[in-house]
């Protein structure tokens, strides 16, 4: 603080509180909407205070007793979302740790070619090449499968790029010391490199989990079997009825349930999240 200006301090707090309020407004309305019977919504007005149907709505949606246009209950889709998010996260970390290790700590013919083949994928999202990727996955007979949901989304170099930068800052003496002590490349990887990259891995885990959980277009396209629906994409099916027939209370319970895991991760691991975000874009 350079000088004391009470008026400016007041404006600061006021702006921040206003910002927080506006940011939270839609979630507040969604929470309220999730506590009313469906009949409360058709009347040309939306209730602004909590109703008494909260338990009933949340329970029936979670267990899939409420009609929703999807044949499987929400808890089941939540499980699918977890499998997809964790699959993408672990898969991405696995392949990118290995390839970054090879590119930084080894010299081998075609190293440059490997580097470019991998890094060409940087920033090109699946949305852009959606139709041909669909055809490839269909040719491989992976529609309606977990591998179909997970594998195509692993093909991105962001994590590899981050690990490469992280590894490059490690001192060369480290390898020398390890080699003098008789450690081979595999021993070095598990005993020195992995422990040293622990925070980076954790930070990336947070970012990748959110990325995986929030996938929308890809699951919409390749799953036609309800058994593989993820929670985020099921919203599309729930809204695919006539405008007046949307059961807003159930839609909002589903929306909130789909938000809770990633939001909890961000709030619970805020330090790692911020680190992962800032590092990933450097």
């Amino acid at each position: 603080m350079i000088e004391n200006r009470p008026w400016l301090t007041f404006i600061s707090h006021f702006s921040l509180l206003l910002g927080i309020g506006v940011v939270a407004l839609p979630v507040w309305v969604a929470l309220v909407a999730s506590t009313h019977p469906s009949s409360a919504f058709g009347a040309g007005e939306i209730p602004l205070w909590f109703g008494d149907q909260a338990l009933e709505n949340w329970r029936s949606v979670f267990l899939g007793e409420a009609s929703s246009g999807v044949d499987v209950p929400v808890w089941y889709m939540m499980l699918n979302s977890f499998i997809m998010a964790l699959g993408i996260t672990v898969g991405k970390l696995f392949i990118s740790l290995l390839s970054a290790y090879a590119i930084v700590f080894f010299r081998f013919p075609f190293r440059g070619a490997c580097f470019w083949v991998i890094f060409i994928t940087l920033m090109l999202p699946v949305e852009v090449r959606i139709v041909p990727t669909y055809e490839v996955v269909a040719n491989l007979d992976m529609l309606n499968s977990y591998s179909g949901l997970i594998l195509p989304l692993i093909a991105s170099a962001t994590a590899t790029f981050l690990f490469r930068q992280c590894f490059m800052t490690m001192p060369g003496e480290l390898i020398e010391a390890a080699r003098i002590d008789g450690a081979g490349p595999i021993r070095f990887f598990f005993d020195i490199l992995l422990p040293m990259s622990r925070t980076n891995i954790a930070a990336l885990f947070v970012i990748m989990f959110i990325y995986g959980w929030n996938q929308y277009l890809w699951p919409v396209i390749i799953t036609t079997d309800d058994a593989y629906y993820t929670l985020v994409m099921s919203i599309k099916r729930m809204l695919a009825v006539d405008q007046g027939d949307i059961e807003w209370n159930h839609v909002m319970v589903t929306t909130l349930l789909a938000m809770i895991p990633p939001v909890a991760v961000v709030i619970g691991m805020q330090k790692l999240f911020v680190k992962g975000l800032v590092d990933a874009e450097k």
Partner: peptide, 26 residues
């Protein structure tokens, strides 16, 4: 960095998973 591991086959094995995924799905 100037120190590397002198291995012939291992690095290919390490980049293989990412290369395969990139080739097939990208």
């Amino acid at each position: 960095m100037s120190v590397y591991f002198p291995h012939k086959k291992l690095p290919y094995l390490l980049v293989l998973p990412q290369l395969v995924i990139t080739l097939i799905f990208f």
